[in-house]
Amino acid sequence: MRSDPAEQPEINLVDPKLYSDGDPFVQWRWLRDNEPMYWHPPTELPGFWALTRYEDVRAAYRDAETFSSAQGILLRPAEHGADPGGGRTLALTDAPRHRQLRGLVDSWFAVRSVRELEEEMRGVTSAVVDSALERGSCDFVTDIAARVPLYVICKMMGVPDSGWEHLYTLTSQAFGAGDAATRRFAHLEIMGYFEELQEEKADDPGDDLVSVLVTGTVEGKPLSTEDVLLNCNNLLVGGTENTRIAASGGMLALLEYPEQAQRLADDPALLQPAVEEILRWTSTATHIMRTAVRPTEIHGRRVEVGDRITFWLPSANRDERIFDEPDRFDITRKPNRHLALGFGEHFCIGSMLAKVELRLLYQEFLTRSIRVELDGEPKLLDSIVVNGPERLPVKLTAA
Rank of each mutant, 00 (worst) to 15 (best):
D4H: 00
P9V: 01
E10N: 09
N12Y: 05
V14R: 12
Y19F: 13
S20L: 04
G22E: 08
F25L: 06
F25P: 01
W28D: 00
W28R: 01
W28M: 03
L31K: 07
Y38P: 06
Y38W: 12
P41Y: 11
P46W: 10
G47W: 07
F48C: 13
F48Q: 09
T52H: 03
R53I: 10
Y54D: 01
A59K: 15
A59H: 11
Y61R: 06
Y61W: 09
A64R: 13
E65K: 15
T66P: 13
Q71R: 10
G72H: 07
G72Y: 07
I73D: 02
I73S: 04
I73L: 03
L75S: 10
A82M: 12
G85C: 10
G86F: 08
T89I: 14
L92F: 11
T93G: 13
A95Q: 15
A95D: 15
P96N: 15
R97Q: 14
L101M: 14
R102N: 12
L104P: 03
L104Y: 05
S107A: 14
S107M: 09
W108K: 06
L117F: 10
E118C: 12
E119C: 12
M121F: 15
G123V: 15
V124W: 14
S126W: 13
D130F: 12
E134W: 05
R135L: 07
D139R: 13
D139H: 10
A145F: 01
P149R: 03
V159L: 02
E165G: 07
H166R: 14
H166L: 12
G178A: 06
A180Q: 10
R183N: 05
R184P: 00
A186S: 02
I190C: 03
M191G: 09
G192L: 05
F194M: 02
F194H: 01
E199Y: 00
L209Q: 00
L209W: 03
V210K: 00
L213I: 01
V214G: 00
G216S: 02
G216P: 01
T217Y: 05
V218H: 06
E219A: 15
K221R: 13
D227A: 10
L230I: 08
C232V: 00
G238A: 09
G239R: 00
N242I: 11
N242V: 14
R244W: 02
A246I: 05
S248F: 04
G249L: 04
G250N: 04
L252R: 08
A261T: 09
A261W: 10
L264Q: 10
D266L: 07
D267N: 09
L270H: 07
P273T: 11
E277Y: 15
S283Y: 07
T286R: 14
R290W: 11
A292K: 11
P295T: 06
P295G: 11
V305S: 02
V305I: 13
G306W: 06
T310H: 10
L313E: 06
L313K: 03
A316G: 04
R321L: 10
I322P: 00
E325Y: 07
P335H: 02
A340M: 03
A340H: 06
E357A: 06
L358S: 09
R359K: 15
R359A: 15
Y362A: 03
Y362M: 06
Y362D: 03
E364Y: 08
L366G: 05
R368T: 02
I370Q: 02
E373D: 11
E377D: 04
P378F: 01
K379V: 05
L380P: 00
L381V: 01
D382A: 03
D382H: 07
S383C: 01
V385T: 09
V386D: 01
L392I: 04
K395Q: 15
A399M: 08
